[in-house]
């Protein structure tokens, strides 16, 4: 299209460049341009949270931002959470607590929970519920997700204490 913009975005620690239309949504930039399809789309009204990523460390519904708004920023997607072939303790906890079924909401849930834990290492149950209230899941009924976030907080704190 006529008015392509150049953007530079650091995605999961790697500098990426793109020529994008100003109207291109961030989620489509991640999925279609960069091939990072772990970030999902579940609605068109900013309701489901399947598209949640971190931008400069804060959670963001990537269906509700333009790619150009990420220019010069740092994005973390679900593909960037595990490191060196090791699941993140939060991902481990999701697996141990059976906090996912179809997995479609899972990347968004993981990113929202990650954001919560980055700001609040000891969240209460109601804080966890509130933190993922913008992420819809139709499979699990949420209880195991809440349990997983609790378990992850414990793991992370134990790990921190051990260092």
């Amino acid at each position: 299209m006529s008015s392509l913009r150049s953007i530079r975005v650091r995605v999961n620690g790697i500098e990426r460049e793109g020529q994008v239309e100003p109207r291109l949504l961030l989620v489509d930039f991640l999925r279609e341009h960069l091939g990072l399809t772990g970030t999902h789309i579940g609605c068109d009204t900013t309701s489901c949270g399947a598209c949640t990523v971190l931008m400069d460390g804060r959670s963001l519904k990537s269906c509700t931002a333009f790619a150009v708004q990420a220019d010069g920023r740092e994005i973390t997607t679900v593909e960037g959470v595990a490191a060196d072939g090791q699941l993140h303790p939060l991902q481990e906890a999701f697996r141990e607590q059976h906090a996912l079924q179809c997995g479609y909401c899972t990347p968004g849930m993981v990113m929202s929970a990650l954001y919560l834990l980055s700001r609040n290492p000891n969240p209460t149950e109601s804080q966890i519920r509130r933190a993922i209230a913008g992420n819809l899941c139709r499979c699990t009924g949420y209880l195991n997700i809440i349990a997983a976030v609790k378990a992850a907080a414990l793991k992370l704190n134990t790990r921190r204490a051990a260092i």
């Binding site: 990072l36 999902h40 789309i41 959470v81 697996r95 997995g103």
Partner: peptide, 23 residues
């Protein structure tokens, strides 16, 4: 046994490969 699922690691790391992900 309540074994953890084989499916989960892919799904937790963004390697789920749903229809929308195919090119």
């Amino acid at each position: 046994l309540a074994l953890p699922r084989k499916e989960d690691i892919d799904l937790l790391t963004g390697r789920g490969t749903y229809v929308g992900d195919l090119q």
